[in-house]
Write a protein that binds this DNA or RNA. Structure first.
Lengths: 215, 215
DNA sequence: CGCTTCTGTTAGAAGTTATAACCGCGCGAT
DNA sequence: ATCGCGCGGTTATAACTTCTAACAGAAGCG
């Protein structure tokens, strides 16, 4: 068994309070976005005074990084749960959309406007490749192929390091990539409200792209 | 001729200084993103002290709103210039991509993470429909149709208010919409750096989607 | 039981946006 | 040509923010 010496009460308390802080942070992000997140406001909500939070997160950036990490992990868990439940590529797409709709700002924390200076830590790219692995698995057993004569196939076959050691042919790589970019395109526009004034239903567009992908 | 009484020197100075402020603001946004924009820093750069800028922009939000407006207009001008130059749908796509790559943060100001409270003023939606008009024009004379049996066509035919009074059939509406969402999908991922660690060339993906759209 | 370490406090520095009060120059009208 | 209003700039100040420093108290561990 793992060398887990019984965790001390202090450690318990510490992780518990960290979680509580993140809980309040998510509330704030959901209502005011990431730039509106204020450590002071969180502390006030929790009934303690400002600098106390620095015992748990060394800076505001570290808190946000942790939130991004959690968001990524949660997305990966969601996708993997759907895949484990026997979902095909379309099922993964629907799972992705419902996950994004439940908390748009959480989605934008991952796929939204990047902060110029910021660089994601290694483990989130690891989580990203976990997601990609699921996509590739599901993309293997999808419908018939389209655009198999596209020159990009050669490029994908040549540069497949992002797929790790996944045994997927160029068509599968292509489909997974299109799944990702196309669904993100619609989702991102929908969540940002770019469809609202147009009078059409984003769900229809999303479903349509999903059909085109799995046809 | 327009009732433009000779503009006073003060008005000249005012508009000139407003432009200068926006110039510095764009620099800051390009290097630190929108949330990193600081009125104080701009004032310092211009050699004047903080609150002076409030003579020209009533608040930081108003400045950003103005920048968004300008960005939208610039995008619309770019697209329309390409269309006026005889560009087809693929040409518009390439123009869009180069425009986005020249200043990613400017692109994200339009299509990036939305600020929860913020609502775009009317004239930007007007500019948006200007862009869409160009897209619809170009989408009319594109290659043969794909997926003409998709159920979304009925939905598009029924909800076509976003196309204004443009005489486009459902296939054209569909193609313009796919053009928008798919290219935005790739562009957004590319600009946010989600392709960097993967070792593949976003330009190839973009070109491939463009081919699929205009095939 | 005592020592150490961890947690929370207040104080304060260096920023930010934004408002208020004030001063002087220049434009426009007379 | 000159007078006066208004505009543009300034400083001072308030209310925020993140974050550091110094300190007090409590809780855990040997």
């Amino acid at each position: 068994m793992t060398a887990a010496r019984r965790e001390t009460p202090r450690e318990r308390y510490r992780t518990q309070l960290r979680a509580e802080i993140k809980e309040h942070a998510w509330e704030q992000i959901a209502t005011a976005g990431a730039p509106g997140l204020s450590l002071n406001a969180i502390a006030k909500q929790m009934g303690m005074s400002g600098p106390a939070l620095y015992r748990y997160f060394s800076s505001r950036d570290e808190l946000i990084t942790e939130l991004i990490r959690d968001a990524y992990r949660d997305l990966a868990d969601t996708v993997r749960a759907a895949a484990a439940g026997g979902a095909d590529l379309a099922g993964l797409g629907r799972a992705l959309r419902t996950w994004a709709l439940t908390d748009p700002q959480r989605y934008f924390l991952i796929y939204g406007t990047p902060i110029p200076g910021y660089h994601a830590p290694d483990d989130v790219t690891q989580t990203a490749s976990l997601i990609m692995e699921c996509l590739l698995d599901a993309a293997r057993s999808s419908g018939r192929d389209v655009a198999d004569d596209d020159p990009v196939r050669a490029h994908l076959a040549a540069h497949r390091q992002w797929a790790g050691d996944h045994p997927a042919d160029a068509a599968t790589l292509h489909r997974a990539l299109l799944f990702w970019s196309r669904l993100h395109g619609i989702l991102s526009l929908e969540l940002a409200g770019h469809f609202t004034g147009m009078g059409l239903d984003p769900a229809e567009l999303f479903a349509s792209e999903l059909r085109a992908l799995t046809r």
